[in-house]
Simulated scan of single mutants.
Amino acid sequence: MSRGIYIVANEKVGENAIALLNSIRYYDPNVSVFLIPFNDNYQNLAAILSEKHNVQIFPDLDFLNQFTQKIAEIFDRDFLALPNKMRKLVAWFGPLDEFLYIDTDIIVFEKIADVLDYLAEFGFICNDYHHAGRGLQDIFSPLIREQKIFTEEQLSDVFNSGFWASKKGTISLEEMYELLRECSQHREYFDFSRQVTDQPILNYIILKSIPKRLNLVKIPGGGPGSWAGSKHFQERDRVLYDGEKRLQYIHWAGTPMKPGAPYRELWEYYRYLKEPKPTETSTVQTKSFWQGMINKAKNLF
Rank of each mutant, 00 (worst) to 15 (best):
M1V: 12
V8S: 03
V8H: 13
E11S: 13
K12L: 06
V13K: 10
A17I: 14
D28F: 04
N30L: 09
P37R: 05
F38G: 00
N39K: 10
N39T: 10
N41P: 09
N41W: 09
N44T: 13
L45M: 11
L45W: 12
A47G: 13
S50Q: 07
K52W: 10
H53T: 02
Q56G: 10
D60Y: 15
L61M: 11
F63S: 00
Q66K: 06
K70W: 09
K70R: 11
E73V: 13
D76K: 12
R77S: 14
R77A: 08
L80K: 12
L82V: 01
N84R: 11
K85D: 12
R87M: 08
K88A: 06
L96W: 11
E98T: 15
D103A: 11
T104P: 01
D105V: 05
I106L: 04
I107N: 10
I107F: 02
F122I: 12
I125Q: 04
Y129E: 03
G135S: 05
L136N: 04
R145S: 02
R145N: 06
E146H: 07
E153N: 02
V158K: 01
V158F: 00
V158A: 10
F159S: 12
S161P: 00
F163L: 10
A165F: 08
K168D: 11
T170L: 11
I171T: 07
S172H: 08
E175V: 09
Y177E: 11
Y177I: 15
Y177V: 14
C183E: 09
R187D: 07
V196R: 02
D198L: 10
I201E: 04
I201T: 02
K208R: 09
S209M: 11
P211I: 09
L216Q: 01
I219P: 13
G223F: 04
G225V: 07
K231V: 13
F233D: 08
R238C: 03
G243C: 12
K245P: 00
R246I: 11
L247P: 00
K258D: 12
P259D: 14
W267H: 09
K274C: 11
K277V: 09
P278G: 07
E280Y: 04
S282D: 11
S282K: 09
T283M: 15
T283K: 08
Q285A: 15
Q285E: 07
F289E: 06
W290L: 03
N295H: 08
